[in-house]
Every structure is written in C-alpha cells, then in structure tokens.
Amino acid sequence: MGTSGTFGGSKSGLVPSWVDDPPSTPAAAPQGAPPPGGDGGVGDEGAGTDTQTPPAAYPPLRPPPAGSGLGAARGNLTRGARTSDGRAVRRGAGQYVSASGGGRGAARRMPSSRAAAGGIAGLARNFATQGPAEALRPFNLEGLAGAPAVDVFVALTDALCPPGGTIDEAIARDAMLETIAALAAEGVGNFDEMTPADLQEFFIGVVTRSIEGKILNEVGTNSIRVSPDLAAVERAQRMLHDFVDGCVRDRFAASGSSLADVSSRQIDDFVSDLYGAAFDLMQTLGEAS
C-alpha cells in the first residue's frame, strides 16, 4: 500500500523536525456526517472475559484563563490564512487547546471521534492477531475481507459513523472519508493484502483529520476562508494539517506501542491518551511559535 511505512515521530523532545517544513497541497475529500456512541465492538473475537472498559472519564473542565478565549485562536488563524504564516497557524491551534481546557479538555469534547478511532484501533489489532476476516467480523463485514480496501473502509465508516447526527459525529465521519480519499489517491489494493502498518497509518490519518476538523469547525471555518486567494486558503489548511499530523505522530511514536500491542481493555484509554497528548503538544508548540 502506498501509505505504508514507519511513522516519523520526533525523537527530539517537544520540537519535532517537521515544525518548519514547507506546506504541501491538501487532498480533496468527501463530505459526510456521524458515529454512534460506542467503539463499534472491537473486542477480541471469542476472547471470553476480555471485555472493554468504558471510555476514560475526564475530570470536570476548568474555565480557561482570562484572555485565552477562542477569539485569540481565531485571530491567529485569520492572520495565517491571509499571510501564509505557519507560526500564526500554530499559535491559533495552540490557543484553541488552551481555550478548551488543555489537552484533556479538548479531547473530552470529541467523544464521537475517539469512539471511531477506537473502532479502527480494534480493527487493526484484530487484523494483526486474527487475520482480515476476523478483524471485520465485529462489524458484520467479514464477507468483504478480500474486497478493495477503499470499499471496506467506506463500509466501516458507515458502521462506525452512520450518516446523520450531531456535528461531533459529522466530524468523525468526515475524518474517515477524508482519510479514505487520501489512501485512494495513492492507490491502495485489496483489504486482505494490507499490513498492520497500513491499518496503523489509517488510524493515524483519522485521528489527525478529526482534530483538524474540530479546530476548523469551532474557530477556523470563517478564519481560514477570509482570504480571496484560493491558493492561500489551501496553504493555510495544509499548514494546519501538517502541524496536527506531526503532533499526533510524535505522541503515537512516544507511546512506544503499535496497535497490535494494545489489548481490547486498553483501547479506549490508549485512544483518549493519544488525543490528549497530541493536543498538549499542539498547545506547547503553539505557545512557543
């Protein structure tokens, strides 16, 4: 699969090497909507007592400090869109996290995206340990094991994020569809020919795009589109995507785990921790920009 490969998470602490990389052109993606409240039943097939725990409970959100509201984030994203200033885009993303109550607070605001990502993590784990058909069985999709991967992922999106629902559910669905579009553009084969690393890449893509979609929905939709220059808009969106993607990959690499190593009991906590840690890194790097 064209997207395979080891993840490029930074090993240099809080300043990954990708921070000042030049932006590239974003891939177009379909629009969509929503997920159910669970993780799609991603427990081990026939695992007996190996049942999943509920999603990690977060403490009550604290109000953000004075002067750190969404207005500051919106202002920096607007500046980034008008001037193609990557530092302004990073500052805006970091200020969004601060205004959301930090990494855990921001992650807590994305229950549907975390549930969808948990479903994909369980699929990847079962694929590595039990094979393609068994990985799809919890979603009643085992008959698609030898089908094109794009078809399987679209069916998985409908299972995890059926159309129609809340904005949060729509963000999760869009993240999956956008990632599928990116994989299709690079030419992906049949599902049963994929590797665990390919599915791990799909998981990373969905987590990244769901965070990016959340920020754009809450503070960036109008800010990013203020420029009359379409190329500038695309550059700003790509800068935001690259920043979020780098943070997610860095924190995933720092976990020291592959999805095949995460038990069904640990999936919810692993996913929640990844979202929170990625948001925390975005805040730290954004404040340093």
Rank of each mutant, 00 (worst) to 15 (best):
S264T: 13
Q237S: 09
R74Y: 05
P34V: 14
L61Q: 04
V248R: 00
A124V: 04
I204S: 01
V271N: 04
M194F: 07
T179A: 11
P54H: 02
A107H: 05
P23Q: 13
S227H: 04
G8L: 14
I171A: 11
L240W: 03
A33P: 01
R137D: 04
P54V: 06
P228H: 08
L281S: 09
P138H: 08
D20I: 10
W18Q: 09
T25D: 12
V154Q: 11
G118N: 01
M1S: 12
L136G: 02
T6P: 08
G276F: 06
P163H: 08
N217R: 14
A133E: 13
P228F: 05
L61W: 01
D174K: 14
L177K: 08
N140E: 10
R251T: 11
V188D: 00
S263M: 08
S264W: 00
H241V: 01
P111Y: 03
A288P: 00
T166D: 13
I215P: 04
P36Q: 13
G146A: 14
V15N: 09
L61H: 03
A33M: 10
A149T: 10
R238W: 10
L70N: 11
A99I: 04
E218A: 12
Q95V: 05
Q283L: 15
G46V: 02
A121I: 00
R90M: 06
G80E: 03
L183Q: 09
T157C: 13
D20L: 15
F270Q: 06
A107R: 05
T179M: 08
V188E: 05
V262H: 02
N126P: 00
A231Y: 02
L274R: 06
N190F: 11
G43E: 12
A116S: 12
D21V: 11
V233Y: 05
I171F: 07
G94V: 14
A99W: 03
T195D: 07
M110L: 11
A145L: 04
E287M: 15
D280K: 10
K214E: 13
P35Y: 04
L156G: 01
G101P: 08
V154P: 00
F270R: 02
G187P: 07
T51R: 10
F127H: 01
Q95E: 12
M176H: 05
G286W: 06
G102I: 12
L177G: 03
I215L: 15
M176C: 11
G122I: 03
S272T: 15
P111E: 05
F252S: 01
N126E: 09
E201C: 06
M110W: 02
E287K: 14
Q31K: 15
A278T: 13
M194I: 09
G2Y: 09
P63V: 05
I224S: 04
V188T: 13
L177R: 09
S12F: 08
V207H: 01
G146T: 15
P36C: 11
D273S: 14
P65W: 07
V150F: 04
D273V: 13
V19D: 03
L199Q: 02
R90E: 01
C247I: 05
I204G: 00
E234F: 11
G122L: 03
I211G: 01
E45W: 12
A197V: 09
A181V: 12
A159R: 15
F127A: 03
A135T: 02
E201T: 15
T129Y: 02
